[in-house]
Amino acid sequence: MLKVDLSPKISSKKMRVICPPPGKQVRHCKRSAQEAMYPSGRARRRGGFVVAGVFVYTQRFGFGARTRAQQASMRSALRTRGRLQPAFPSSSPSSSHREPAPMNDSAKPDAISVIVIVKNEAHDIRDCLASVHGWVDEIVVLDSGSTDGTQAICREFGATVVETDWPGFGPQKQRALDAARGPWILSLDADERVSPQLRDEILASVKSNGADLFRVPRQSNYCGKWIRHSGWSPDYVTRLFRRDAARFSNDLVHERVIAAPDARVGTLTQALIHYSFRDFSEVLGKIDSYSTYGATQGAARGKRGGLRKALLHGFWSFVRSWIIQRGFLDGKMGFVLAISNAEGTYYRYLKLMLLETQQSAAAKARDAAPESR
């Protein structure tokens, strides 16, 4: 992805400029091509194009060069003069980036520690860490048994990698929080990316002392489709906070950040990019694992399952996502998302019913054991 700097040396005949409709206010006129492709909820589709500020592109990649050699030469010359730059930093750490230094007890008050929990995330973790490398002070990764090279990738970015078991999402993130040493914590998942705009807002926010926790809007991609409705947008998550102002819940799944009673809560405006699911195989895998965690957690809290509850709650989950939260505006993928939400709820209550049956049978077996002896 490239940024194009419009200078007088480039003929305007080779450019087409798409501007927003008259009367529409544009908050940032100079927006990157990456932001234009993945807007934070403000852009809308007009005539097949994504309108997000001013999106400039060329009819020919080489600004008029007619051969591949001429195009390559032109791109090389423009890079040398600084007119073409990547919209996002390189996925690999470069010599211009500083490695996160080990934290000490006298860390600066606005130092930021990034925490990530992983297992076999080699397909995602590189882009995640590349989005924070060079501007945070510490990266802490808790790995629960990766076998795909995830740990090696994390160490390329200077991360502190801690190998551990898997107690569940909430307890694992609390472990990562305890291992971090910076006064500010930025909690990320491996499938999330911090955009340059969000980076700048984070750095300004930790210096302003305006709040102790910050809610961040999240823009999510579902199997290649950016979801604008369905309860996913706006999707505010608390990811930036002072380490002494919050902790993670003990939930096995769908963990929460619990703020201290006197903590001040703020809200950021720039979106956290979230690639939630790559394909339907991943969707099915998470439906299975998350419904198992949810059933186990529900049984521990005394919830009851059953076929009737599974059907009713599953149906309500679909209605809420597809109709109430306007998932129909997300097209066919909005419908698919509503179905997958319903499936997750349906199987959670079925698994809870099965757990109750198994626990009841085990209790009867224990009661019958003394009589048999």
Rank of each mutant, 00 (worst) to 15 (best):
M1A: 06
L2P: 00
L6P: 11
S7M: 00
S12F: 00
K14L: 12
V17G: 00
I18H: 01
G48D: 07
F49G: 00
F55Q: 10
Q59R: 13
G64K: 08
T67I: 09
T67L: 10
Q70D: 15
A72N: 13
S73N: 12
S76N: 13
S76E: 14
A77N: 13
A77P: 04
A77F: 05
R79N: 11
L84W: 14
F88I: 13
P89S: 14
P93R: 13
R98G: 13
A101K: 14
A101D: 09
S106E: 12
S113V: 05
I115S: 07
K119S: 03
E121N: 06
I125Y: 03
A130I: 03
S131D: 06
H133Y: 15
V141L: 07
A152R: 15
E163S: 15
T164V: 12
P167R: 14
G168V: 09
Q174Y: 08
R181S: 14
G182N: 04
L186P: 05
S187V: 01
D191L: 02
L198I: 03
K207Y: 00
S208Q: 08
S208A: 15
A211E: 02
D212R: 03
F214E: 02
R215W: 10
V216D: 01
P217A: 02
S220E: 06
K225A: 10
I227Y: 01
D235T: 00
F241Y: 13
R243D: 03
S249V: 08
D251C: 07
L252W: 07
D262H: 11
D262L: 08
V265R: 12
G266W: 09
Q270V: 01
S276C: 07
R278L: 10
F280G: 06
V283F: 04
K286Y: 09
S291I: 05
S291F: 07
Y293E: 12
T296S: 11
Q297D: 13
R301G: 05
G302R: 05
G306K: 03
L307Y: 07
L311Q: 04
L312N: 02
R320N: 09
W322I: 01
I324Y: 08
Q325T: 00
D330S: 05
V336F: 10
L337N: 10
L337S: 04
N341C: 10
G344P: 00
Y346C: 12
Y347C: 09
Y347E: 12
R348N: 11
T357E: 15
Q358M: 12
Q358T: 10
A361Q: 15
A368S: 13
A369V: 04
P370L: 09
E371F: 12
R373N: 12
